[in-house]
């Protein structure tokens, strides 16, 4: 079980990093999304993989499912969702303004005056 989850997170992360290194904005945004999925899953399992456990600390229970990673991952999901929306809008705006969806900056001129 641990091996399965760990390797799944690793594969998602690797795919995300591969897409991040592409030259155009859409694969980069998709790559970021995959990276955040991998991170969220990772954060979720830092509370250990357990089944059939009491949900919160309770008297009489020797062990329990750790509630904190679940709270953390909720915050992380909200933030990463918002950030993804921001970068999608910015990538779109960048495409509209420069008529190119390349991530790299345009090669700059040598500062010749327009006039």
């Amino acid at each position: 079980m641990e091996l399965l989850v760990a390797s799944a997170i690793g594969v998602i992360m690797a795919a995300g990093v591969y897409l991040l290194l592409r030259a155009r904005t859409l694969p980069v945004v998709l790559g970021l999304t995959l990276v955040t999925y991998a991170v969220n899953l990772f954060l979720f399992v830092t509370g250990r993989l357990t089944v059939d456990q009491a949900p919160v600390l309770n008297q009489g229970h020797e062990s329990f499912a750790d509630p904190l990673p679940q709270a953390l991952v909720l915050t992380a999901i909200v933030i990463s969702f918002g950030m993804t929306a921001v970068i999608v809008v910015m990538a779109l705006k960048s495409y509209v303004e420069s008529d190119s969806d390349h991530v790299d900056l345009d090669p700059q001129d040598d500062g010749e005056a327009d006039s």
Binding site: V35, V39, M90, L105
Partner: peptide
């Protein structure tokens, strides 16, 4: 246009940074 492109790069690098931050925290 140039500012937007630089902005996309800036957001991307910081989102990756945030991901690493969460892994470290986790």
């Amino acid at each position: 246009a140039a500012r937007m492109k630089a902005g996309v790069q800036y957001v991307t690098i910081n989102l990756v940074g945030s991901g690493l931050f969460l892994i470290g925290v986790g």
